[in-house]
Amino acid sequence: MSRIAERFAVLRREGRGALITFVEGYDPDPATSLAILRGLPGAGADLIEIGVPFTDPMADGPSIQRAGLRALKAGATLAGVLALVRDFRAQDPATPVVLMGYFNPILAYGVARFCTDAAASGVDGLIVVDVPPEEADEIEPQARAQGLDLIRLVAPTTDEARLPRVLAATSGFVYYISITGITGTRSATAEHLRGAVARLRRHTDLPLAIGFGIRTPEQAAEAVRIADAAVVGSALVDTLAASLDAAGRARPDTVRQVLDQVRVLAEAVRGAARSGGG
């Protein structure tokens, strides 16, 4: 069983949803980034999503755009992010790691070589934002061959006709984008989420994660009452950004501030009574 499936199975037995945290790799520098990653499981992150910096992140809002620029300035590359995962994995054999990014850096690295190296580095799943199911043959065979889950985004705009096709191309979990928009810009209502999750449940048994608009502990708790996981990204990235000095460098309490926020989110997620899902 993959680490992702294993983790969701365990949480299901415990009767609770998962907190998935997103941070951009190398933001604001590789050492701070690694320290945050290493602290995440202890602070309560159940799965870890790492953004791979790209110059042109067309699905991301201002927070993650700026995080990407800070990371690139700090020398981020895809190879560097894989090294970060290896360093994380050396101390944590269990927490699933998902890389989220755009296709061009993977193309430049070489798709097959990337999938091989990612799996060897301890990556469990990939979210390649700009490779929809229509272009899946670009990376799916290589990812499958290495046992990497390809996690697909499902949007409010993904209609009934299209949904089976998207879900058929998905493994690991389904990432429901709760808003029509870019990351971190607005939030969906619980009513909308309940309807969307019910619709997805009719089509798939995969765990469902909700992301792209969850900022507060209350919203995270709400999300795991409705679905299987809450993804929090921009809110953490904002906390990190606010902790930096004027030159954009980490300050002594940057790591602690991010992890403290994760603790509060995790507490809310763990305290949420499940109503739907299961």
Binding site: M58, A59, F103, V129, D130, V131, P132, E134, E135, R152, L153, V154, A155, T157, T158, D159, R162, V166, I177, T180, G181
Partner: peptide
């Protein structure tokens, strides 16, 4: 049919846009 000219072109967009592109 995939929007390719030889190996070029295609539809490399996020899922949010895909239904609209179609």
């Amino acid at each position: 049919a995939r929007g390719r000219f030889g190996g070029f072109g295609g539809r490399f967009v996020a899922e949010t846009l895909m239904p609209l592109i179609l």
